[in-house]
Amino acid sequence: MTRAPVMREALVLGISLLSAMAAGSLLILALGESPAHVYGLLLRSTWGDSYGVGQVLFKSTPLIFTGLSVALAFRAGLFNIGAEGQLMLGGLAAALVGASLPAGAPAALALPLVVLAAALAGAVWGAIPGVLRACFGAHEVINTIMLNFLAAALVLGLGHEVFLPETTHTALVVEGARLPALGLAGSAANLSFILALVAAAAVWFYLARARRGFELRAVGLSPGAAENAGVRVRATWVAAMATAGALAGLVGCNFVLGYKHYFEEGMGRGAGFMGIAVALLGRGHPLGVVLAALLLGTLSHGGMAVNALVPKELVDVLQAVIILAVAASSAALDRGAGRAGQ
C-alpha cells in the first residue's frame, strides 16, 4: 500500500529529469557543443571541489527556504506565488535592523534579532493574502503576484530613504549580526544553510507530528471536513500564509547576514519563483525540498561555470522544463492511478 506512491514519485522525478536533460541537450547541440562535455564540466565545477560544493550550498540555501514556503502553503491548499516579494522585504528588514544596532552588539543578541526581523517582515507580507482570502474570499494567486510588484515598488520607494547615496544598497549590518561562513574554500556558503536545514526539519515536524500541522493538512485536502472536525479553517489559512511568508523572509539571511552584509536591490530575485519548482520537484516533502534545492542549486552554479560554452540562461530554461515536466507527469500519473483505483 505504501510502496506504490514511492514508485510513482520516483517515476515522476525520472521523467522530469530526463526531459530536462533532453531539452538541455537539444539547446546545447544547437550551439554546436557536446552535451556530454557541457554536463561533465557542469558536474566537475560544482561537486568536484570544495569551493564548488560551497557555492552550490550557497545557491541552494534560498531555494530551500522558498521551496519550504511554497510547499507549506500548498499543503494548506494555498498557492504562494508571493515568495518573491516576501523574501525582498525579509532581506530589507534584516539589513535595516542589522545596520541600526549598536556597533558592539553581541552576536547572541543581535543574530536572533535580525533573523526574527527577516522572518517577521516576510510573515506580514505573507499574511496579507491570507487575510484577504479568509475575510473576502479573494484568491491568493493574484494577490500574491500583485504583492510581489508592490514589494518591489516598496523597496524602491524606501530605497530613496535608506540606500546609501548613489548606490542601490543599504549600509552594512553590524559585526554581531553577521552569519559566519562555512569555510568551504572561500565560497559564499554560510551558516544560513544550516539554518535552512533546521527550518526543513521544523517544517517536517510541524506537518507530520504537530497538532496544528495535522489540522493544516486537513484544511488543505478538505476544508469542509476540517471545519466539521472543529478546525478553524480561516485562521489556518492566515497562519499558513504567514508562516510561508516567514520562511521566504529568511532568504534574507543568506545574502544579507551571511554574504554581502547589506541589502541590495534585486537581491535574491527569482528565488521566489524557483521555490515553486523546488516544492513541486520535492513533492511537497521537506526532505524532498532540500534535495530539489540542492539539484537546482547545482544547476544554478554550474550554469555560471559553463557560461563560456553555453549561455547561462540555459539553466533558466532547464529549470522551467523541470517544473513543466513534474507538473504534467504527476497529473498524468494521478489520473492513471485514479482510474485504476475506482
Binding site: F214, L221, S222, A225, A226, A229
Partner: peptide
C-alpha cells in the same frame, strides 16, 4: 464533510 478522502483511515479517525 465527513472524511478527508486523501487521509489514511487512522488520520480520519483522529479528526
Amino acid at each position: 464533510r465527513g472524511l478527508v478522502l486523501d487521509f489514511s483511515l487512522e488520520e480520519n479517525l483522529a479528526l
